[in-house]
Design a protein around this nucleic acid. Structure first.
Length: 399
DNA sequence: CCTCCACAGGAAGCGCAGGAGT
DNA sequence: ACTCCTGCGCTTCCTGTGGAGG
């Protein structure tokens, strides 16, 4: 195995040295790249601009809610408009700053505020302070340097679902504590229903203005991919068919531009690795599989030990098992390799996490008199799991 | 129609890590 | 040195439940 991977590594390097690269600028296909033009979003850009424009002559502006499914350009458009706004503001010597936080990536209220503090150039420890303390520091920073802060909360639905609307409530009424500065909110969500979880006062304040981002059509995706591929690839290194296929595949989901761009980027990598002069349809098809496989490997690798053991006890049995049987197998394995056995409640939690990751499928069955249980089926290949798990010394001892 | 199995999954809380302020 | 903060993984305790057998 060592030899083989060394050889292919050699291949990769020699090819990189001898062969020409297909990419002019790979970053143009990354999801956080913000292009200088955002096609098919002119209306949304104008609306957001109109909402924020009052800030430029020192007036207040409405808070804003942005809706749209994943990959419809919400984040890119918001960041784009704010960048333009900051440029305009700095030429006029207005103190307008913006802070961005993705609440799902941040994960907790504390880290959300931590992100905000970072954007403002405040130094705050990444743990240790009370949430209220960080909040107070941010408020006083806005007040003392008399700035206008535009706070973008991406995936705001995550925050609301997991932590309720307390923090949002505080944020919406923060202006009352701000005699000098000003705080404005932009919420971004891909779930329309999250409003139900909001206190009416918060809701009315937050959604003074609402903008909806529709999914891209397949035609629009195609045009976007053409634009980006011109920046990303050298001339004549990508076929029309490949681009069309990427657009069609992503379009059949729900017009997810991020997925389309990912697909195109990976297709390019596949073609490059193969030493092909052009990206073609077959590279896209390989890329689809590769993305899926990479996702699996990542998921498997980052599993905590207990989850690995649990997954192994499911997969190595080969057949569908009930929760009780799995727990039995799991605790046996734990004893064998001298690892602490977790409670069934916790294991049931880990199990639903595995389900969520798509590593196993479960379905609830009732056997009447003989109880109610989940039937658990592995949804990945045993050999594949074995390969990934063998990297882990503890799991390796199990084979 | 009732019962009762074998779990699901919610709620609360514990102990620890990692840090701040005093 | 001491108290107080939050997040995280986990346990304990709990209530809920579809349907075969009585």
């Amino acid at each position: 195995m060592g030899d083989k991977s060394n050889n292919s590594l050699d291949d990769i390097f020699t090819r990189a040295l001898s062969g020409r690269s297909l990419y002019k600028d790979r970053n143009a296909l990354r999801s956080d790249y913000i292009p200088s033009k955002l096609p098919f979003r002119e209306k949304q850009i104008i609306s957001i601009g109109e909402t924020l424009a009052p800030l430029l002559h020192g007036s207040k502006c409405s808070n804003l809610l942005i809706y749209g499914k994943t990959g419809t350009g919400k984040t890119a458009v918001a960041k784009y408009v704010l960048m333009k706004l900051s440029e305009k503001a700095s030429t006029r010597n207005l103190k307008i700053k913006f802070a961005y936080s993705n609440t799902r990536v941040a994960g907790t209220e504390y880290r959300l505020l931590f992100d905000v503090a970072q954007y403002m150039g405040l130094s705050v420890p990444f743990t240790g302070l009370a949430i209220g303390e960080v909040f107070a520091r941010i408020i006083s920073a806005i007040n003392s340097s008399i700035i206008t802060l535009i706070l973008v909360l991406d995936e705001i639905d995550f925050l609301v679902k997991n932590y309720g609307d307390n923090l949002l409530y505080e944020l919406t009424r923060a202006n009352e504590q701000l005699p000098k500065g000003y705080l404005s909110l932009i919420g971004i969500s891909n779930d329309l229903k999250f409003k139900e979880f909001l206190d009416p006062r918060v809701l009315s304040s937050l959604s003074e203005e609402e903008i909806v981002f529709p999914p891209y059509t397949a035609e629009e995706l195609k045009a976007i991919l053409y634009d980006r591929s011109k920046i990303a690839f050298f001339d004549d290194t990508i076929t029309e068919a490949a681009i069309n296929l990427c657009a069609a595949l992503a379009g059949s989901e729900h017009g997810d531009a991020r997925r389309a761009l990912d697909l195109l980027r990976v297709s390019g990598e596949v073609a490059e690795r193969e030493g092909a002069p052009k990206v073609e349809e077959r590279h896209v098809r390989t890329a689809v599989q590769k993305i899926e496989q990479d996702r699996m490997v990542d998921a498997l690798r980052s599993l905590p030990l207990q989850a690995k053991i649990l997954l192994w006890s499911i997969i190595s049995s080969g057949e569908a098992n009930s929760t009780g049987e799995i727990y039995e197998r799991y605790s046996n394995i734990c004893h064998k390799i001298n690892v602490e056995v977790l409670t069934q409640r916790r294991v049931s939690m880990l199990l639903s996490e595995l389900d969520l990751l798509g590593l196993v499928t479960t379905n609830l069955v009732s056997k009447g008199r003989y109880g109610r249980t989940k039937k658990i089926n592995p949804s990945i290949n045993l050999q594949f799991v074995r390969e990934v798990f063998s990297e882990d010394p503890i799991m390796n001892s199990l084979l």
